[in-house]
Design a binder for these strands. Structure first.
Length: 470
RNA sequence: GCUCCCAUCGUCUAGCGGUCUAGGACGUGGCCCUCUCAAGGCCAAGACCCGGGUUCGAUUCCCGGUGGGAGCGCCA
């Protein structure tokens, strides 16, 4: 039995979107578990719409996700002779024929048929005309069988296919001489020895025609497996305008690749009740037999939950490194440090994305005299009564022999002990606002600690000034 | 319109004829914890699209309806 060979064949006409990413993931996981070769092929036969930037974006997206391929990327634009030869062969065998109908003529005839309620397929006007190479501008059409069934056993949907007569003779070469997707894709799948074609369910209806192509090419079709579509929150096909779909968008929004993979793999596939799948578990457990048939919505809330899960699990150094660009993008660049690492550990429990983490780290990244006091927080917690305690705490902190959590906590206790009836909450909030500008932050001892003695002191002094001026 | 496909809580799903007073997860609400925000723990509300069959018995099998989706290109 031939070794397993799969492929992901995106067209470089935009960014890598999550539907494509999931298709790539399924191909990747399937191939990795069973052992085989995963081929990457760029389908750029549509020269009008294909761009180098798109190709780079698609490749970049896959790399970011950690979906690696074994062969390629191959570009169909570089394999034109292969398709040309295949078409000539089909022509020579009379399995394809030249068609001189122009798009306009066909459109007119199509309109007429549709107007009477019929289903349009090419009417075969040129099928028996025997146009030779010198017939002028012409396209080439494949002779599709008029009867019989073009059926196959889909890996996900089971027995599938259509009656051959439902199909018309499809164009396989444009008038300008370039091959169409169906032809190029099938020729490549044959040439590359692809054994399993795992792709979106939107190709289910294309498969019968492609089967006819395999037959005409005297080739054995691969095993097909169509995976259900990912639809938008409105239940319709993903729209680049309505839905956030590009992988790059999620990367910029602060999502981790592992979270993306986990999120994507569970839309349309499940393994019992398990929700968390590490990269290794995906490649060890994924199987086509557990792929569903109905399309699913991409739930952003679930992604947030997964992302936080992976943020919580990420090693500290990696998380710090990955957070840096987001800090810079937020206008608060900082150098990696022991303190930043400590902060990240405080923030990982409170951040759904790296963007959110960067926001929460703002108080740390910003200069001591640049703290902006949140108006609501000030109104609620900056009572004149807090002034004395705040002043007392500043002195107490200055006296700490060592700068650690225990000493800071002791300093707070000492202050509390000296002010009758003062609860920790009444002291912590004014301090929190003083050192972070906001009423929400990690634990007050940790927050003061991470700033360091000097920065904490400077901030409390400044707050004292602002408070007494008020 | 025609062809094909799909159908369990708002969402992702478990279920492969009796174990279902239908389980889990996200989200939502409440409670607990608590220096704030989170995190965490506990509890709650919440679904088998409808109608026929088949069967002793249907969420599970079959048919029809309804609803939704995809495809019907000299796009991929």
């Amino acid at each position: 039995m031939a070794t397993l060979r799969t492929r992901f064949a995106p067209s470089p006409t935009g960014f890598l979107h999550i539907g494509g990413a999931r298709t790539a993931l399924y191909n990747w996981a399937y191939t990795r578990r069973l052992g085989g070769s995963f081929v990457l092929r760029i389908e750029d036969t549509d020269r009008e719409r294909s761009t180098a930037e798109s190709e780079a974006a698609v490749l970049g997206g896959l790399e970011w996700l950690g979906i690696d391929w074994d062969e390629g990327p191959f570009r169909q634009s570089e394999r034109a002779e292969l398709y040309a030869a295949a078409i000539e062969r089909l022509l020579a065998q009379d399995r394809a024929y030249r068609c001189v109908c122009t798009p306009d003529e066909i459109e007119a005839r199509r309109q007429a048929v549709v107007a009477t309620g019929g289903k349009w397929t090419y009417d075969g006007r040129c099928a028996e005309a025997n146009h030779g190479p010198a017939c002028g501008p012409h396209a080439v059409r494949l002779r599709v069988p008029r009867e019989g069934k073009l059926g196959f056993d889909d890996g996900v949907f089971g027995p599938s296919g259509q009656e051959a007569r439902e199909l018309g003779d499809m164009v396989i070469r444009r008038t300008d001489g370039t091959p169409l997707y169906h032809l190029a894709g099938v020729v490549d799948d044959v040439a590359m020895g692809i054994t399993h074609v795992i792709r979106g369910a939107d190709h289910l209806n294309n498969t019968p025609f492609q089967l006819a192509l395999y037959r005409a090419l005297d080739a054995t079709p691969p095993q097909f497996a169509h995976v259900p579509l990912i639809v938008g929150t409105d239940g319709r096909k993903l729209s680049k305008r309505r839905d956030p779909v590009s992988v790059q968008h999620f990367r910029d929004a602060g999502y981790l690749p592992d979270a993306m993979l986990n999120w994507l793999v569970r839309i349309g596939w499940s393994h019992g009740d398990q929700e968390i799948f590490s990269r290794d578990e995906i490649r060890a457990l994924f199987d086509l037999s557990e792929v569903h048939r109905s399309s699913g919505q991409a739930d952003p809330g679930k992604l947030d939950w997964l992302n936080q899960h992976y943020i919580k699990e990420r090693p500290r150094d990696a998380l710090v490194r990955e957070l840096l660009p987001f800090l810079a993008a937020a206008g608060t660049p900082v150098e990696p440090s022991e303190s930043l690492g400590f902060l990240v550990d405080l923030l990982r429990e409170r951040s759904k994305t790296l963007v959110e983490m960067a926001e929460r780290a703002r108080f740390f990244a910003v200069a001591d005299d640049a703290i902006a006091y949140d108006a609501d927080a000030v109104r609620k917690h900056w009572k004149p009564a807090a002034l004395a305690a705040l002043k007392d705490l500043a002195d107490e902190l200055a006296r700490c022999e060592r700068w650690d959590l225990a000493s800071i906590e002791a300093a707070f206790s000492n202050v509390l002990g000296r002010h009758e009836g003062l609860a920790l909450g009444k002291l912590a909030q004014p301090v929190r606002i003083a050192v972070t500008g906001s009423a929400a932050s990690p634990g007050i001892f940790e927050t003061v600690f991470v700033l360091g003695r000097e920065r904490a002191r400077a901030r409390i002094e400044r707050a004292l000034g602002a408070l007494s001026a008020a």
